[in-house]
Amino acid sequence: SEYETMLTEIMSMGYERERVVAALRASYNNPHRAVEYLLTGIPG
């Protein structure tokens, strides 16, 4: 799925699956924002 592709691409940058899933959830599946959250911390 498109979601799995995003997940895999972000994980390939060296992040753990659960952190990527949390970041995508926080960003409403916006991959650019999710990466930003992984770099700066997930808000909330």
Rank of each mutant, 00 (worst) to 15 (best):
G41E: 11
A34E: 01
M13H: 06
V35D: 00
A23W: 03
A23T: 02
M11P: 00
R25F: 09
A34M: 02
N29K: 04
A34H: 01
E4T: 08
H32E: 15
L38D: 00
R17Q: 07
P43L: 12
L24I: 04
V35Y: 08
T40M: 14
V35I: 15
G14Y: 03
H32N: 10
M13Y: 07
E36R: 07
Y15K: 01
V35G: 02
L7E: 01
M6P: 01
L39K: 15
A22V: 08
R25H: 11
V21T: 06
V21S: 05
M13R: 05
H32G: 12
M13K: 06
Y37L: 14
L7W: 03
S12E: 10
T8I: 14
G14V: 03
E18P: 07
I10D: 00
M11R: 01
S12R: 11
I10P: 00
R25P: 00
E16N: 08
R17S: 04
R19N: 10
G41H: 11
T8V: 12
P43E: 09
Y37S: 05
E4H: 09
E18M: 06
A23K: 01
M13N: 03
S27V: 07
Y28R: 14
V35N: 02
E36M: 11
S1H: 12
G14F: 04
Y28C: 15
L7M: 07
L24R: 00
Y28N: 15
I42T: 09
E4M: 11
G14C: 03
E9C: 11
S1E: 12
R17E: 07
M13I: 05
L39I: 13
T40S: 13
E9Y: 14
M11W: 04
L7P: 00
M11Y: 03
M6Y: 08
A26R: 05
N29G: 14
S12P: 01
A22H: 08
V21R: 05
V20H: 01
M13T: 03
L24H: 00
Y3H: 05
A34Y: 02
E36I: 11
Y28M: 15
P31D: 02
T8M: 15
P31W: 11
R33E: 08
T8Y: 13
A34D: 01
L7F: 04
Y3V: 05
E16Y: 04
R25Y: 09
N30S: 06
L7T: 03
M6T: 06
H32W: 12
R17K: 10
P31H: 08
I10S: 00
M13V: 03
G14M: 04
M13L: 13
T8Q: 15
P43W: 10
E4D: 10
L39H: 08
R19G: 05
V21F: 04
R19C: 10
N30T: 05
E36W: 13
I42H: 09
Y28E: 15
A26W: 08
S1C: 11
S27A: 15
V21I: 14
S12N: 14
A23D: 01
E16Q: 07
T40W: 13
Y28K: 15
T8D: 11
P43A: 09
E9M: 14
Y28G: 15
E18S: 09
G14N: 02
S1K: 13
T40C: 09
A22F: 05
P31G: 05
E18T: 07
E36Q: 13
L38Y: 02
A26N: 06
G14H: 02
V21D: 06
N29M: 11
E36H: 12
G14K: 02
R19K: 13
P31V: 11
E9A: 14
A22I: 09
N29D: 08
S12F: 06
R33T: 13
Y15W: 12
Y37I: 12
R17A: 05
I10W: 04
A26G: 04
E16P: 14
E9W: 15
T5P: 07
L39G: 06
A34W: 03
E4A: 08
Y15N: 02
Y37T: 04
E2N: 12
S1A: 12
S27N: 07
G41S: 11
E2C: 07
M11V: 08
T8P: 02
M6I: 10
Y37F: 12
L7V: 15
E2D: 14
R33F: 08
S27I: 03
V35P: 00
E9R: 10
V21A: 09
R17N: 04
L38Q: 00
I42K: 08
T40Q: 13
R19V: 14
L38R: 00
Y3G: 03
V20T: 03
N29R: 04
A34I: 03
E16K: 06
R19M: 15
Y37G: 02
L39F: 06
R19T: 12
I10Q: 00
A22T: 07
E16W: 05
T5V: 12
E18G: 08
S12D: 09
L38G: 01
S12L: 12
N30R: 04
S1N: 12
Y37M: 14
S12I: 07
L39S: 09
E2Q: 11
R25V: 10
A22Y: 05
I42N: 10
M6L: 10
L38H: 01
R17M: 09
A34K: 00
A26T: 05
I42G: 10
N29F: 11
I10N: 00
P43T: 09
A23G: 01
G41L: 09
R25Q: 14
E4W: 11
E4V: 09
L39E: 12
L24Q: 00
L38F: 03
V21L: 09
V20Y: 02
M6G: 02
P43F: 10
N30E: 09
N30V: 06
G14D: 02
L24Y: 01
I42S: 09
V20C: 04
A23M: 03
R33K: 15
Y28V: 08
V20M: 02
A34N: 01
R19S: 13
R25G: 07
L24N: 00
T5L: 13
S12W: 05
E36V: 10
L7Q: 01
S1Q: 13
R33P: 02
S27C: 07
P43C: 07
R17T: 04
R33H: 08
L7A: 02
L39A: 10
I42Y: 11
Y3S: 04
A22S: 07
E4S: 08
A26F: 08
A26P: 01
P31N: 03
L38P: 00
M6F: 08
R33M: 15
Y3E: 05
H32R: 11
E16H: 05
G41T: 11
Y37E: 03
Y28I: 08
E18F: 07
A22N: 07
E18Q: 09
S27F: 07
E16F: 04
M11Q: 05
V35L: 15
N30P: 01
A26E: 08
R33V: 15
V35H: 05
Y3R: 04
E4L: 11
P43I: 11
E16I: 07
M6N: 06
L38V: 02
V35A: 05
A26K: 06
E16R: 05
E18K: 07
E2T: 11
T5K: 15
L38E: 01
L39N: 11
T5G: 09
E2I: 11
E36L: 12
E9Q: 14
L7K: 02
R17Y: 13
P31F: 15
G14W: 04
E4K: 07
G44M: 12
Y28S: 14
T40I: 11
Y37A: 06
I10L: 14
L24W: 02
S27D: 01
E18N: 09
Y37D: 02
E2R: 12
I42R: 08
T40V: 10
V21C: 04
A26I: 09
R33Y: 08
V35M: 13
Y3K: 03
M6Q: 04
T5D: 12
T40A: 14
G41N: 10
N30W: 03
M6D: 03
V21G: 03
E18V: 06
M11F: 03
G44D: 14
L38I: 05
S1T: 14
E2W: 14
I42D: 10
E4N: 09
E2K: 11
T40Y: 15
Y3W: 12
L24C: 05
G41Q: 11
M11I: 10
P31I: 12
R25C: 06
M11L: 06
P43K: 08
N30Y: 03
H32F: 11
I10Y: 04
I42P: 09
T5M: 14
Y37V: 05
S12M: 12
R25M: 12
Y15V: 02
Y15R: 02
A34T: 04
A23F: 03
R17W: 08
A23Y: 02
M13S: 03
Y28L: 14
Y15P: 01
T8W: 14
S27G: 07
P31T: 05
V35E: 03
N29Q: 06
L7R: 01
L24F: 03
A23N: 00
N30D: 15
R17L: 10
L39W: 05
N30L: 04
M11T: 06
Y3P: 02
H32M: 13
N30F: 03
Y15G: 01
G41D: 09
R33C: 07
P31M: 13
S1I: 13
A26L: 11
Y15Q: 02
M11D: 01
S27P: 00
P31Y: 15
Y15I: 03
Y37Q: 05
G44Q: 13
A23S: 03
E36G: 05
E4F: 11
R17V: 06
